[in-house]
């Protein structure tokens, strides 16, 4: 298991190398001199020449790539063109905001999705089952930006229950320690702020959770149906076990491998692709960060953002693979 983990981690290297190559080519695929583009059409030739030298753009491409890799290895993602500060220092608050939102959404999606799937399987072919599955179908095909706007319209504007945007109350901002606000407020013992952060998480969290929730419910249903028909479930019942325990202990664990796969994939998507939701809800996350960078043609930030999202995706897949073995003793990694 340990050796497998190490080996899987080492497989990260070629993946990241590939990603680095792609984002590196990105900036060089732009026609013309990047320095010129970065400085704009009005820049003087001297300034362009100076920046070209500063960025190492006068060097051959392979040397530039090696230089880029070198800086990556030392944890240097370059500087943002917009803010002039190192991206490595700048990115964490955004990343933390996204991680917090994605985890919050995923907890909702898993809790409701799995239980809905179980109920649906239990009452298979009843009106309840049909109702849940139609709801899941609607959930899967829901345009998230529309759902987000509707949520804001109903729950913020009409009912005035929840805040529309942001992570915290701007009149009483959270003092950041880890930038994971739920953790920060707890660490400071500010339960009033903790509640406030939760209130800010609900609307974007529900919007983000909708699609994963629906997919998880459908997968759980089919997986549970298969497991509940199996011989060992009959054995468990013949032992005198109650249905609740049969479902949650003996069936769910067996049904969980496909569910886990979906959770992993969806988690990757939530962390990387929540740009729309983050924009609508003014959520200062990585999606918003990259979106801003794109508007500003802040290439180093775009590069780094893509690289970080890719790395997260790969890491989540690794975690999912390791969890398989934890769930099913028949899965052995060599």
């Amino acid at each position: 298991m340990f050796a497998y983990t190490i080996r899987r981690l080492s497989m990260l290297i070629p993946v990241l190398l590939g990603m680095a190559l792609i984002v590196f080519s990105l900036i060089h695929a732009i026609p013309g001199n990047p320095a010129q583009i970065l400085l704009g059409q009005q820049a003087s030739p001297e300034a362009v020449a100076a920046l070209t030298k500063e960025m190492g753009l006068d060097q051959p491409l392979y040397i530039q790539f090696v230089e880029y890799l070198k800086s990556l290895v030392t944890g240097d993602l370059g500087d943002s063109l917009r803010t002039r500060s190192p991206i490595t220092e700048e990115v964490w608050p955004y990343l933390a905001a996204t991680i917090e939102l994605a985890l919050f959404a995923m907890v909702i999606a898993v809790f409701i999705g799995v239980n809905a799937g179980i109920l649906s399987a239990w009452f298979q072919n009843s009106w309840f089952d049909y109702l849940l599955m139609v709801a899941a179908l609607i959930g899967v095909s829901m345009p998230i930006f529309w759902l987000g706007l509707m949520e804001q319209y109903i729950f913020s504007i009409k009912l005035d229950l929840l805040p529309t945007t942001g992570r915290d109350n701007i009149r009483d901002p959270v003092t950041a320690i880890t930038h994971l606000y739920l953790l920060d407020t707890l660490m400071q013992g500010r339960f009033d702020q903790f509640i406030e952060v939760i209130r800010h998480l609900i609307l974007p969290g529900v919007a983000l959770a909708t699609i994963p929730m629906a997919i998880i419910a459908r997968i759980t249903r089919s997986s549970m149906l298969e497991v509940m028909r199996s011989d060992y479930i009959r054995t468990a019942r013949a032992k005198g076990m109650g249905m609740l325990k049969v479902v949650y202990k003996h069936s769910l664990r067996n049904a969980f491998i496909p569910i886990l796969t979906i959770i992993g994939l969806q988690m990757g998507l939530l962390l990387g692709g929540a740009i729309l939701t983050e924009t609508i809800f003014g959520w200062p996350g990585i999606g918003n960060y990259i979106y801003g960078a794109i508007q500003f043609r802040d290439y180093p930030v775009i590069q780094s953002g893509i690289l970080i999202v890719a790395a997260i995706f790969v890491c989540i897949n690794l975690i999912v693979d390791l969890l398989y073995a934890a769930i099913d003793p028949r899965i052995k990694y060599r």
Binding site: S230, D231, Y232, R234, T235, R253, N254, I327, D328, P329
Partner: peptide
């Protein structure tokens, strides 16, 4: 079916 009557996990 002894092969499938025990929970594999």
């Amino acid at each position: 079916e002894p092969m499938t009557s025990l929970n594999p996990l």
